[in-house]
Design a protein around this nucleic acid. Sequence first.
DNA 1: ACAGGAAATATGTCGGAGTAAATAGGAGAC
DNA 2: GTCTCCTATTTACTCCGACATATTTCCTGT
Lengths: 250, 250
Amino acid sequence: MTDTDLTTDDSARNIDAGRGPGRRLHGAIAHRLGTDILSGKYAPGDILSGEVAFAEELNVSRSAYREAIQVLTAKGLVASRPKAGTRVLPRDRWNLLDPEVLGWAFTGEPDKEFVRNLFELRAIVEPAAARLAAQRRDKADLREMKTALTAMRQHTLTTEAGRAADRDFHKAILQATRNDALLVLSASIGAAVNWTTVFKQRARALPRNPIPDHVRVYDAIVAGDPGAAAEAMNVLVDLALEDMRGSMPD
Amino acid sequence: MTDTDLTTDDSARNIDAGRGPGRRLHGAIAHRLGTDILSGKYAPGDILSGEVAFAEELNVSRSAYREAIQVLTAKGLVASRPKAGTRVLPRDRWNLLDPEVLGWAFTGEPDKEFVRNLFELRAIVEPAAARLAAQRRDKADLREMKTALTAMRQHTLTTEAGRAADRDFHKAILQATRNDALLVLSASIGAAVNWTTVFKQRARALPRNPIPDHVRVYDAIVAGDPGAAAEAMNVLVDLALEDMRGSMPD
DNA sequence: ACAGGAAATATGTCGGAGTAAATAGGAGAC
DNA sequence: GTCTCCTATTTACTCCGACATATTTCCTGT
């Protein structure tokens, strides 16, 4: 409704501005609307302008706009009813753990409270996952963890390759739990971890060497010691949380 | 509800068969395709017939079919590329914690392994949530829990009202954690819990009175004792898991 | 045998027309 | 004057047919 700017220039109001290479048009629209909702530009309860009006405003066809709306509907962000229009759903209906939604939440300055909540979830899930991994891991799992650790040593967390290695390490642990439900959380937690390292790196150059913490977790899992693995992971998450707190204003 | 037949009769192959009252056409198509994928009728890597062919087969327009595909794409079940077609993604890309996907997974006979995994996740998250709830709950939270408990006593778990009260109780706990990320897991876990009680009820009449377990959790949260709350919830989940094991073939 | 380009094919995008549903507003009864 | 019921409008929903675009396939030429 507010339509912050979208300058009067024709090219600027083109949705293609936010369109990546492999991303389709309706995907770009969903991204745009998704970020607008997550950023609070459209608040829960707000009603989006009608299909025809909004599609015209974005210079896209109604089909493309509608397909984007279906995506947002599938993620629990909006709901449409004839005559009533398309309205933004209350926040507790949003699939906040959906990887794409999570990505939208992290464009721009993410909500501090939400980041804190994600870390809390991580502090609950990851130590438990490490405990299970210590019980169930096989040689292939350990090999993947070792590979990721080596990669982390080579490229520091300041590089994308290093952050990818970090994600791989945690993902390898979750895979070792033999639990699909835990694994899908990997995408969410991985995104949070990734954003955190980016943020951390932005604040200070490199506050602390993360390798020893990871090695302790790895060693405990190799030894097959569930308690030690959980405790080591607990320490790792705590330290990461501490680092984040240190680099965040609040 | 399962609609497994789809005989050769023309009217039977009409998609409207699986269409609920408030559900739109594209929603019905998504439901149909979603259940087919979750049930394994379409395996990861399979390529769906072309849009025109499939839409014609379902007696729907291409637009409606495409909107359904966008929904499935948003949930990570499929991906489409020009010329290549629409293919089912590998299972680790599926958003298994999406409430709708979870519902699709539970139409027909759900996968035993997956149910076990969900219980494992529940056993990790809920005690931790109870611990946080004991620290952060306010009077309004306690009131909601008490209301849910009273409702549980009135209608047993054999009724839908009773199951709703059970979900409300757990949801109230998650709300008391003041953590949105934990709360969205409520939808997933709640669905699992609900299905479990349905299944349990199917096997035996009513194996055990669930009220005392819930009361113990409630009392600990009222007392503000995090450790006791976590332990009580741990017992509750263990008993539920035991009940499920007893009523499941494997 | 290999490289480059043309054609084929499926998804992507578009604009419009007609249908169904839900709310708002008005007509009528009490 | 209030309430109920009906109608009327608004809006999303569905369908259609066409064109655009992106890949793959395959054919041609070297």
